[in-house]
Design a protein around this nucleic acid. Structure first.
Lengths: 189, 189
DNA sequence: AATATAATTTGACAAAGGTAAAATATGAAG
DNA sequence: CTTCATATTTTACCTTTGTCAAATTATATT
């Protein structure tokens, strides 16, 4: 999450009524996952959201027996399988811990119920959805306008922490490039 | 907009208070655009939303002097340049009428003000944003998992009205394929 | 119907990136 | 420090799609 949106969200949370915040904390739990653990598996409904406190998660699906990573989550990112969560239908995506990871877990139904009582939570939900749509729009734009080398350079510039901490196989699939092409790109920079 | 979401939105609107609906109508105006007219130009801030009553719009941007079409709008679709509208910053996209088109125009600021007073309008805004994110996710999924031929077939299956009513140059850029490749794909089906 | 203009198709070639297999590097476990 | 497993790089070749130019077809206007 870029600073601009993180600030918006922190500002919003800072403005929450005590009672809203207390209710939210009431339905949330800290959980710890070990490297390799699955937080969500395909075919299950994503009925939890995971706020990363520290560590790294990734979201991926299988296509032609290969893993395609769709998102990496670091501290202060919110991990869900969006369509599964929104429509409460089985997920095609997995969410997995890439390192030992501490998260704050909130149940979908509990959050929906709480939203009905606390308009400020609606604002938070809206802001997060809005940000996800902006992020996706940017991703589509890059896929349309940049070749493999440019996409790698963009990632290097905008998200160096990903390149430093994640395996190339996963970065390659995230960028929609083969592992071999990514390796060649890196050799020529 | 697929039936599933259109039903959700119509259901929501049907449940609106009389007063909410009246206020919304108060800040909306019917407008008519001729084929080729621009509803939004790049570098301007998208401070209006356009609900298509009939006709066809498209949204596009320039990249390396070529037009890349990002979306087509038919009856009951809502046309905005999303990031420009949300962040109220200059748009890189144009919105143009592909045919003579009747739209219902709502001003951004008026709508934001009205939302503060009418929670049901927040729900509407949320539903539309949510749907846009789902649509973008599906678009990214197709770009990652389908080749040019498959993407064309998917469009043919899911949005035949686009292929029937829009020029191939625009469809090609929409699918991220060259016009020539699209022409060859069509010749082999 | 004739003409101009725009849209689409076709051909020849080039570039980008993918695939498969082998070689090398890295890192964890004993 | 050695070994095994995993991650990454490299090589050779192949496939898909793009580019440019030209030809053809369709559409609109006089």
């Amino acid at each position: 999450m870029p600073k601009f949106y993180l600030d918006k969200i922190n500002g919003l949370i800072a403005s929450f009524d005590k009672e809203t915040l207390a209710s939210l904390e009431m339905i949330s739990r800290s959980r710890f996952f070990l490297k390799g653990d699955y937080l969500l598996r395909a075919d299950n409904i994503c009925n939890k959201s995971y706020w990363v406190e520290n560590g790294i998660l990734r979201k991926f699906y299988y296509h032609n027996s290969r893993e395609i990573t769709t998102e990496f989550y670091f501290a202060n990112d919110l991990a869900i399988s969006f369509d599964s969560y929104i429509l409460q239908k089985p997920s095609r995506e997995y969410i997995q811990a890439l390192t030992d990871t501490a998260v704050n877990v909130t149940d979908y139904t509990n959050f929906q119920n709480l939203k009905a009582k606390h308009p400020q939570l609606q604002d938070l939900d809206f802001l997060l959805t809005e940000y996800y749509a902006l992020w996706l729009e940017e991703k589509v734009f890059e896929l349309y306008t940049q070749n493999a080398t440019q996409r790698y350079k963009t990632l290097l510039r905008k998200s160096p922490h990903i390149i430093q901490q994640v395996q190339l196989t996963q970065i390659a699939s995230y960028l929609n490039i083969s592992l071999e092409t990514l390796s060649r790109i890196r050799a020529n920079i």
